[in-house]
C-alpha cells in the first residue's frame, strides 16, 4: 500500500467494500428508525386523499414557489446547479457507469467526456459559492453546524479529485485516482450519519408533508 498502485488497489478493493457496507447498512438502519415510529390513527374526517398529494409533493417541492424564488434566488439557482451537476457527473460519466455495471450489474448510456468535464467544473464553482454563501449569509451562518461544513467537505472532495484525476493534474495517476476513490469512500461512510441522508429521506419527508396537507384538502 506504500506505492500509489498498492494504494489504489486498497481504496478500490477492501476500503470501497467497507464503505459500501457502512453506507448500505447504515442507511437501512436510518430508514427503519423512521418507519418503525409510525403514525397515530387520524380520526378527523378527511377532505382529500393522502397518497396522491403525497406523491405530488415529492415532485413539486423540487421547484420553489415564485415568492421564495424571488426572495432567495441564490439558494434556489445555485442549489439546483450543483445538485444537477453532481448527479450528472456521478451517473452519466462513462467510467462511473462501468463501475455501476460492476457493482449493480446494470448500465445506461453516458454523456461525452467533455460535457461531463464542463458540468464538473461548473459544479466545483457552484459548491465553492455555496460554501461562501454559508459563511456570509446571516441566516445560513447562524444555523450552520460543524456537520454542515463536514458534509460540504465530503461532497466537494469527490468532485474536485475527480476533476483533478480526469485532467491528470496530479501525478502519478494511480495516486489521484486512489484519492478520488478514497474521497468517495469517505462520502459513503459519512452518509448515513449526517444530513446526507436527505438524499433518501427528503422524499419521505415530502410525502408526509403532501399527505398531511392533502388530507386537509390542500396541495402543499
Amino acid at each position: 500500500m506504500s506505492d500509489p498502485m498498492g494504494f489504489l488497489l486498497w481504496v478500490k478493493g477492501p476500503a470501497f467494500n467497507f464503505a459500501l457496507a457502512v453506507f448500505a447498512l447504515g442507511m437501512l438502519a436510518r430508514l427503519v428508525e423512521i418507519f418503525i415510529l409510525g403514525r397515530k390513527t387520524n380520526y378527523a374526517e378527511a377532505k382529500g386523499g393522502e397518497w396522491g398529494p403525497g406523491f405530488k409533493t415529492m415532485l413539486t417541492r423540487t421547484v420553489a414557489d415564485p415568492g421564495t424564488f424571488a426572495r432567495a434566488p441564490f439558494n434556489v439557482v445555485v442549489g439546483w446547479i450543483w445538485h444537477i451537476g453532481f448527479i450528472t457527473a456521478l451517473l452519466l460519466f462513462i467510467p462511473h457507469i462501468e463501475l455501476f455495471r460492476g457493482v449493480l450489474g446494470i448500465a445506461w448510456p453516458g454523456l461525452p467526456n467533455p460535457v461531463v468535464d464542463a458540468v464538473t467544473a461548473i459544479t466545483i464553482l457552484a459548491l465553492v459559492a455555496t460554501l461562501v454563501h454559508r459563511t456570509q449569509h446571516p441566516v445560513k451562518k447562524h444555523i450552520s453546524t460543524p456537520e454542515d461544513y463536514l458534509v460540504w467537505t465530503v461532497t466537494f472532495l469527490p468532485v474536485l479529485t475527480g476533476y483533478l484525476a480526469y485532467h491528470r493534474l496530479v501525478n502519478p495517476y494511480p495516486l489521484i485516482l486512489g484519492l478520488h476513490i478514497l474521497s468517495v469512500n469517505l462520502f459513503l461512510v459519512v452518509f448515513p450519519f449526517t444530513k446526507l441522508t436527505h438524499v433518501f429521506t427528503a422524499f419521505i419527508a415530502r410525502w408526509y408533508n403532501g399527505a398531511i396537507f392533502g388530507r386537509k384538502g390542500v396541495q402543499s
Binding site: 418503525i36 415510529l37 439558494n75 442549489g79 441566516v139 444530513k195 436527505h198 429521506t201 427528503a202
Partner: peptide, 20 residues
C-alpha cells in the same frame, strides 16, 4: 415523535429557506 418527525429531521440541510 413519530415517523414524519423523524423523516423531517433526517432531511433538513440547513438551507435557511424557512427563514424567508
Amino acid at each position: 415523535i413519530d415517523a414524519p418527525v423523524a423523516a423531517f429531521f433526517s432531511s433538513c440541510v440547513h438551507c435557511g429557506l424557512c427563514a424567508t
